[in-house]
Nucleic acid binder design. Structure first.
Lengths: 148, 148
DNA sequence: CTATTTGCAAATAATTTGCAGCTGG
DNA sequence: CCAGCTGCAAATTATTTGCAAATAG
């Protein structure tokens, strides 16, 4: 997810937040990582260049971003929170052997699922979105995956 | 998920575990709850009848069950582990306003998804299973939902 | 009998909180 | 200016660990 400083600036201020150095750096780090980092991953990634930004601020900033819809939390099974800079509806591939979480989205499949639920009689429930969760393992952990 | 003592006994011993009172009670509690409890929920549910079973034992037992495949961990976004007695492939409805996690499975829809991936060229990835995650809110939090 | 399991208490890991000082708009 | 942020350190919460005593098979 390539995003430049102006876009980050705009994203933060559009949501009524003050544009601070910390927020710029933290958002930039999350957007630059592909595998959905934890708060600690982000802290480590930015710490060398920005030793004054504290872990507490990373947590608070991530929280604020989630609250404003700038980031989303990722579903996990190990009680560690991970963050996603892609806020549009999309699924995830969980690689059990590498601990990576990889984005996955297919327009056609999504359409099929949406149509499926349109035909259903859904009672007392307002569906917000539906995503896929693909549990898998990489065959060669050092190489990338692809689905075509 | 109604399950009797003999079945629990069998489920535990079949997996090479010793059948203890604690394990019987803990499994029975998880199976009896529909909304995917946390370790603490389980502890509270059993504590009155079984004051000698400690929270530590609940944690260890749940871990052991997950390791043996008797229970599954549920994906969450708040860093709290929740457990699922249904080990077959199925999806979840996350009710944001009630914090409930409700099972959902549709055979036909599952078949469509499986067929979709059969047609794909998947590289360097071995897919284990695919589930749906439905993010939603209950309209009346006190009533049940249904999808027909 | 003996390898496992349990209970207890202490330890750890992840996250949150309180508050004084700083800063963006 | 001053409401909203940040850094720091202490607090909290969920979970794990170590170990001696108990117990299933």
């Amino acid at each position: 997810m390539i995003i430049n400083k102006d876009e980050i600036h705009e994203k933060i201020s559009r949501n009524g937040l003050k544009v601070t150095h910390q927020r710029m750096v933290i958002y930039g780090a999350v957007a630059g990582m592909t595998h959905h980092p934890t708060a600690d991953h982000i802290f480590e990634a930015i710490h060398e260049e920005n030793p004054s930004i504290s872990l507490g601020t990373v947590y608070k900033t991530l929280d604020t971003f989630v609250e404003k819809g700038i980031l989303k939390k990722v579903f996990t099974t190990n009680g560690q929170m991970r963050y996603d800079p892609r806020t549009e509806n999309h699924g995830h591939i969980y690689c059990s052997n590498t601990d990576e979480i990889i984005d996955y989205y297919d327009k056609d499949l999504n359409e099929v699922i949406v149509q499926f639920f349109k035909k259903k009689r859904v009672n007392n429930l307002m569906i917000n979105n539906i995503t896929l969760q693909i549990n898998a393992r990489k065959i060669d952990p050092d190489k990338d995956i692809s689905i075509k």
